[in-house]
Amino acid sequence: MKIIRSREFVANRAWGAELVATIPNATVRLHWTDQPYHWHVNDGEEVFVVMDGEVDMHYRQDGQEQVVTLLAGDLFFADSGDAHYACPRGVARVLVIERAGSE
Rank of each mutant, 00 (worst) to 15 (best):
P88N: 08
S6C: 10
W32P: 01
W39V: 03
T22V: 13
P24Y: 02
R29F: 00
C87Q: 14
G81N: 09
L75K: 10
Y85G: 02
V68T: 13
L71M: 08
L75P: 00
F9T: 07
T27H: 08
R29T: 00
N25I: 00
N25T: 11
E103V: 11
G16M: 07
H40N: 08
V50H: 05
V67A: 03
V67L: 05
Q66L: 04
A83Q: 13
V20I: 15
H40T: 10
E46R: 07
E54W: 01
G53L: 01
L95E: 08
Q66G: 01
L71K: 15
A26W: 11
V67R: 13
I3V: 14
T33R: 02
A92D: 05
E65W: 04
L95P: 05
R13W: 02
E98R: 13
R99M: 12
Q64Y: 02
E65M: 05
L70A: 12
S6P: 11
V68W: 04
G81K: 08
R29A: 01
N12W: 02
A11N: 04
D62T: 04
L30W: 00
V50Q: 06
I3R: 13
V50D: 05
L75N: 08
D62E: 14
L71A: 14
Q66R: 15
W39E: 12
Q35G: 04
V20F: 08
E98K: 15
D82R: 13
R60G: 00
V41F: 01
A11P: 04
E45I: 06
H84F: 09
R60S: 03
W32E: 01
A17V: 11
R89V: 13
E54G: 01
Q61A: 12
G53P: 02
W39Q: 04
S102K: 03
E8H: 12
I4F: 11
I97G: 07
I4V: 15
E45D: 15
T22P: 00
V67S: 03
M57I: 15
D52G: 02
D52L: 07
E18T: 13
D82I: 13
M1E: 12
R29D: 00
A100L: 15
Q64N: 10
G63F: 09
Q35E: 15
